[in-house]
């Protein structure tokens, strides 16, 4: 008998499915409500903001599973898949890019947490890496569209459409702007990763469970 067609035999497997489904639905709910609104009004850096929420949700799911009998491997990418599957329920522009972004962020966190035991700093590192995905994705899309002129187009877009000029960024070159955004995103991701660790600890304490 094929393993995939077997019923859920153990409480651990049922718990895995439940955690993935529920936390994926939470992330999906944020994406189709707050995320759809931010995408529609084109708030600058909305992708990074939504990534922060996603990082916290994924890491709480991961730590919740690790606190049980399950090691939690594969859970973050599965949460991302469920959230991405929910996204088409909201028909807004940029939905496909958001889906790709969600999957990439989930994969990034999964890779960062694959080996070794989870800890506050590991969660922070995973968050840091995942928070860079929106910038990498934007640059990739712009490179596909504009080729070698992508960097100058990126700079122009940042200064004119996203209010960079008003923030006094006009003197920066494209490279330094990318570096600045990358550092800001990385710090934001690090903080979100550590917040995810703390929040999961508080939740487990409130539920009377032992946090790792």
């Amino acid at each position: 008998m094929d393993e995939s067609s077997e019923p859920l035999r153990s409480p651990a497997r049922a718990q895995w499915v439940a955690v993935v489904a529920v936390f994926g639905a939470v992330w999906g709910a944020f994406e189709i409500s707050l995320g759809a609104f931010l995408r529609s009004v084109s708030i600058p850096m909305h992708g990074t903001l939504m990534t922060g929420i996603g990082i916290i949700i994924m890491l709480v799911a991961r730590r919740t599973l690790s606190a049980g009998s399950h090691h939690g491997r594969g859970a973050t990418i599965a949460v991302g898949v469920v959230a991405a599957a929910i996204l088409p329920l909201s028909v807004t522009r940029g939905m496909h890019q958001a889906m790709v972004g969600i999957l990439a962020e989930a994969a990034c966190i999964e890779i960062a947490l694959w080996i070794g035991r989870p800890s506050r700093w590991r969660f922070g590192l995973a968050g840091l890496l995942a928070a860079l995905i929106p910038l990498v994705q934007l640059l990739t899309v712009m490179t596909v569209q504009y080729g070698p002129g992508a960097l100058s187009t990126f700079r122009e877009m940042l200064l004119t459409k996203q209010g960079g000029e008003r923030l006094g960024l006009a003197a920066f070159t494209a490279g330094s702007l990318i570096g600045l955004i990358a550092v800001a995103s990385a710090v934001f991701g690090l903080v979100c990763g550590m917040l995810g660790w703390s929040l999961a600890g508080q939740i487990l304490t409130r539920l009377g469970r032992k946090a790792e």
Partner: peptide, 19 residues
């Protein structure tokens, strides 16, 4: 990751109102 993922997706979509 593939095992039970379809079930998780289906449950996730159904849980949206509860969330």
């Amino acid at each position: 990751v593939g095992r039970d993922l379809g079930l998780a997706c289906a449950i996730g979509v159904n849980l949206l109102p509860a969330i």
